[in-house]
Computed example of a mutant assay.
Amino acid sequence: MDLNGRTALITGANGGIGLATARGLVARGAQVVLGCRNLQKAEEAQAAIQNDFPEGKVEVLALDLANIMNIRSAAEVLKRRFPRLDILINNAGVMSLARKETRDGFEMTFGVNHLGTFALTQALLPLIKAAPEGRIVTLSSTLHYRGHMQWDDLHYRSRPYKGWEAYNQSKLANVLMTQALARRLKGTSASAFALHPGVVATDLARDYPAWLMKLLKAFLVTPEKGARCSIYVASEPGLAAHNGAYFESSRVKKPAAAALVEEDQERLWKLSEELTS
């Protein structure tokens, strides 16, 4: 798809998959906004992209998914800048081996990967619906197949914290959210998708020991390869017919059975609204 005249916001776009995705969309003519917590790194990414694509349009937006008030402020900035948002790519994510909390008191992995993403998506829906073919693309993971929603303690306040377990839960929440959102977008010009980018060499596992990362390196794909599915889902014509779909390797794949339970989709949606209201 020729993306000339279209505007995209990519969260966590100062490095890794997000930066590679931004390059791909700029190459296709899109105006891209890099939504990042670290403005210095975002500006460095902006300069690098514009060095490669002198005619490209790249902007920077201060955005911290661990802070609900900041998310709302960032959304208001976008609403003042743009009449519509054609593509939202919820790319940013964290994975911590130790329990941490967001500014709002949520467990960090669930708070950023799901609740921050949910709050941003909700705040930007009017802009996305104003586009001729708005797309919301959320990066989940194949690890969502191993996820379980710990409804009695989503934030690990009363049980031992396990980093991978929390991450798997957050990635399952991404697919549950996408399913519930797709249902709400029926009859509009917008659609929602989730995807697995592959096992990619990024800063996501920055807490891991160096020896372990060296061992895993042989099994990791580059951010450029990891970005291919995001770029495909953001730009491939005709995907509105697959509203709500989960993608791997740029193909529709059936998500985990746990992600298809409508009762859980609605339970998470209602809970997310309450927590981020």
Score class of each variant (00 low, 15 high):
residue 208 Y to E: 04
residue 11 T to L: 01
residue 272 S to A: 06
residue 242 H to M: 02
residue 54 P to Q: 05
residue 79 K to M: 07
residue 79 K to G: 02
residue 84 R to K: 06
residue 101 E to P: 08
residue 132 P to K: 07
residue 253 K to M: 03
residue 202 T to Y: 07
residue 267 R to F: 06
residue 125 L to H: 15
residue 138 T to K: 00
residue 240 A to R: 12
residue 252 V to F: 00
residue 12 G to L: 11
residue 179 Q to T: 08
residue 164 W to G: 08
residue 48 A to E: 12
residue 187 G to K: 00
residue 71 I to H: 01
residue 188 T to S: 15
residue 189 S to H: 12
residue 276 T to V: 13
residue 23 R to V: 15
residue 29 G to R: 14
residue 127 L to P: 06
residue 107 E to M: 09
residue 151 W to H: 07
residue 246 Y to W: 02
residue 220 L to S: 02
residue 44 E to M: 13
residue 232 Y to Q: 01
residue 78 L to I: 14
residue 62 A to C: 05
residue 203 D to K: 08
residue 106 F to D: 07
residue 48 A to I: 08
residue 46 Q to W: 09
residue 109 T to Y: 14
residue 220 L to I: 02
residue 116 G to V: 10
residue 67 N to L: 03
residue 136 I to E: 02
residue 249 S to A: 07
residue 133 E to V: 04
residue 249 S to T: 13
residue 17 I to P: 06
residue 243 N to Q: 06
residue 253 K to F: 09
residue 215 L to Q: 10
residue 234 A to I: 13
residue 202 T to H: 11
residue 83 P to M: 00
residue 123 A to C: 00
residue 183 R to S: 11
residue 218 A to W: 13
residue 2 D to L: 07
residue 185 L to V: 12
residue 210 A to T: 08
residue 212 L to Y: 14
residue 8 A to Y: 04
residue 47 A to M: 03
residue 266 E to H: 05
residue 101 E to H: 05
residue 148 H to M: 14
residue 224 E to Y: 10
residue 180 A to I: 10
residue 240 A to Y: 10
residue 72 R to Q: 03
residue 100 K to N: 12
residue 249 S to C: 05
residue 36 C to F: 06
residue 65 L to I: 00
residue 217 K to D: 06
residue 51 N to V: 14
residue 107 E to Q: 15
residue 264 D to V: 04
residue 27 A to L: 03
residue 93 G to I: 10
residue 275 L to A: 13
residue 104 D to A: 11
residue 159 R to D: 04
residue 1 M to G: 09
residue 246 Y to G: 06
residue 61 L to I: 05
residue 203 D to P: 02
residue 103 R to L: 12
residue 109 T to E: 13
residue 226 G to C: 07
residue 182 A to P: 03
residue 135 R to H: 01
residue 228 R to G: 13
residue 114 H to T: 10
residue 51 N to M: 10
residue 217 K to S: 12
residue 77 V to N: 04
residue 171 K to D: 02
residue 218 A to M: 03
residue 56 G to W: 10
residue 148 H to W: 15
residue 76 E to Y: 00
residue 79 K to R: 14
residue 122 Q to C: 09
residue 192 A to N: 12
residue 266 E to G: 07
residue 95 M to P: 12
residue 208 Y to M: 12
residue 111 G to P: 06
residue 203 D to A: 08
residue 266 E to I: 08
residue 108 M to V: 14
residue 50 Q to Y: 01
residue 42 A to M: 00
residue 261 V to P: 08
residue 139 L to Y: 11
residue 38 N to P: 11
residue 260 L to Q: 04
residue 238 G to E: 10
residue 127 L to T: 05
residue 42 A to I: 00
residue 22 A to G: 04
residue 166 A to I: 05
residue 139 L to S: 06
residue 110 F to K: 04
residue 160 P to F: 04
residue 228 R to W: 13
residue 181 L to S: 10
residue 125 L to G: 13
residue 276 T to K: 09
residue 251 R to E: 02
residue 125 L to T: 14
residue 238 G to D: 01
residue 203 D to Q: 10
residue 244 G to V: 03
residue 255 P to D: 12
residue 173 A to V: 05
residue 273 E to S: 05
residue 159 R to P: 06
residue 43 E to Y: 08
residue 119 A to T: 15
residue 68 I to E: 00
residue 52 D to M: 11
residue 51 N to C: 08
residue 19 L to A: 13
